[in-house]
């Protein structure tokens, strides 16, 4: 039956395509405008980052990356990603699983809460933690008495990053998990598999591309986050400056090439992310099509119920 629906959709798209075919001029114009827009506002600046980074030669580029504060920033960024991405993956999988496969009270509230970080400005996200853990905040004095430092230290940066990046995995997984349904899992249960085994051997593999996609986006944002991290960082060079903060610092110090050298690493990360994302989308698309084909085949000859 799913097959029938999708066939109807295909018919609808075919029709609308026929509608636009009538004016190739408009089509060409639209594509041209989009292309130009992307080139001017996205591609050129990106190329410029690399051009600026290498403006004073490879040697300086290399030297600025090897400078202790830059190395520390790179290390901190990787460290934050290493903390945040697994946690948010765990959270995302749990949340998506709960939402996609079970009915419970407060489900829609949970979905809304997952989206909260998308709606909230990163600055607010940072300030939340300052208010919570800052010396003037609710928990600050207690933490201070126990000599535990959250904000202006790695935990605070990690918390702010977790906040900002936590929708990514869950958001990617929920639709995939909903589409997969529960039958494969139930099949595993009837074959004697426990919950853990079912999760590892059935649930996870069937959503792996969506999961990877979410992880990659989460990682990209975790490494690139500026606003929230800036609020809780304290900007201590070589200690609490992440790569994006370090880029800003270098730029403000009139160290253009060094700033762009570090920025180029972030841009490179973006390119790798995009590449992986495209690859995963392609994989997912292919699997989805396979699933579609089988659903259509299955639907053939089936009586309407």
């Amino acid at each position: 039956m799913g097959g029938n629906v999708s066939r109807m959709n295909r018919d609808a798209t075919a029709k609308s395509q026929r509608g636009t075919e009538e004016s190739p001029l408009v089509k060409g114009l639209l594509v041209g405008v989009c292309g130009l827009f992307l080139a001017v506002f996205l591609l050129l600046p990106l190329i410029n980052v690399f051009a600026q980074a290498l403006a004073k030669g490879w040697q300086l580029y290399w030297a600025s990356l090897r400078e202790p504060d830059s190395l520390a920033a790179i290390k901190l960024t990787l460290q934050i990603a290493a903390i945040v991405v697994p946690l948010n993956t765990l959270f995302g999988v749990c949340a998506a699983w709960a939402i996609a496969k079970f009915e419970f009270r407060g489900k829609s509230l949970l979905i809304t809460l997952i989206d909260l970080p998308f709606a909230v400005s990163p600055v607010v996200a940072g300030l939340i933690y300052v208010i919570m853990f800052g010396l003037q905040g609710y928990l600050g004095p207690w933490l201070d008495r126990h000599d535990i430092q959250i904000i202006f230290a790695v935990p605070g940066i990690a918390l702010a990053t977790i906040f900002v990046t936590f929708p990514f995995v869950a958001r990617e997984l929920i639709p995939v998990m909903q589409a997969t349904g529960r039958e494969q899992e139930e099949a595993a249960l009837t074959l004697g598999a426990g919950a853990w085994r079912t999760f590892w051997h059935v649930t996870l593999p069937s959503v792996k591309w969506g999961l990877l996609y979410g992880i990659i986006l989460c990682n990209a944002r975790a490494m690139g986050e500026f606003g929230a991290v800036s609020v809780v960082s304290g900007h201590v060079s070589g200690v609490t400056n992440t790569m994006p903060l370090h880029v800003e610092k270098l730029y403000n110090e009139y160290q253009g090439p060094a700033a762009f050298a570090v920025a180029s690493l972030l841009a490179l990360l973006a390119l790798v992310t995009l590449g992986l994302k495209t690859l995963l989308e392609w994989k997912q698309q292919r699997e989805y099509q396979n699933a579609q084909v089988s659903a259509t085949e299955a639907a053939v000859g089936r009586q309407p119920e």
Binding site: Q184, T190, K208
Partner: peptide, 19 residues
């Protein structure tokens, strides 16, 4: 539990493990 009942179940859409 399901696992303890020693039954074989064939689902309507087969639910073969895709992977």
């Amino acid at each position: 539990s399901v696992q303890q009942r020693n039954i074989g179940f064939v689902f309507q859409n087969y639910a073969l493990f895709k992977n």
